[in-house]
Design a protein around this nucleic acid. Sequence first.
DNA 1: GACCAGGATATAG
DNA 2: CTATATCATGGT
Length: 302
Amino acid sequence: MMNEILKPETLNIPTPSDFSFEECLAHLMRSEQETVHQVTDHSIYKAIKIDDDEPILFIIDWKPDALHVRFPFTTPSAKQKEQTASFIIEWFDLTTDLNGFYELAKHDPILSPIVQNHYGLRIMGIPNLFEALTWAIIGQQINLTFAYTLKKRLVEKYGDFVEYEGKKFYTFPSFEMVASLTTDDLRALQFSTRKAEYIIGIAQLMQGGKLDKDLLFKLETFEQKHLYLTTIRGIGPWTADYVLMKSLQESSAFPISDVGLHNALKKQLNLDRKPTMDELKELAEKWTGWQAYATFYLWRSL
DNA sequence: GACCAGGATATAG
DNA sequence: CTATATCATGGT
């Protein structure tokens, strides 16, 4: 049909009934310095690479009950459409059934009000494993504002981009690119020497085929994945949990030492101090299987 | 001007 | 094994 040909390439991705696009948007808009996506007037703009090709830009809008995806810049192949769809499904964690978590939260005085305020929020992931690892390492022990500054410098210097309507849309730097850098290259962006070593080391590990998502997926248990990650230099318990939560969709991942988590609990429990490790463990017992969602909602409460 | 940031490691005791 | 210094710099 004629208008079938003229119709721009689009993609429709159904969303669950308890999905809140606005809550997810609020998460994506939390930093002015974000460089790997942009939100304008309730539309999300993002560029990704598929098969190491040129970046593909897509725009996501939401209308009940689906995400509508446009490709303004390219006419995507069937494969590109398919990969974009899988990326978005992972990004918004659309396959997780949240009923278990919401049921649990009803009986939890800490989570209950947060879930009410942010109902429909899903864990916004970082499907790209190298990006998740790098972002976690950047965020170690520094405030989020500075972390975003460092990420912005890295992305704008070593990422690729496409231009659309006068704006640049960056993809996160590839591990191949970062594997070829020296620590001085990252020191120039004000990374600490240690973090530069960690990030380049991980990039080289990935380039050598010794670390990727498939490899982690093949490990049977959560503990095995966690152990595999923490044997890598620069990846401690917090980073492993953060990455398992944001990139591997492990709902049991629990960055228990996270400062933001501590501050959120301090606020919710009206404490004049941060919770102790014993208190954290006791609270989290009720969250078994949903620690990642409990953490993500607590972060949101800050 | 301390002190803390979405920690991890190297080194010392 | 546990304790402590170190990292780089922005925000408070």
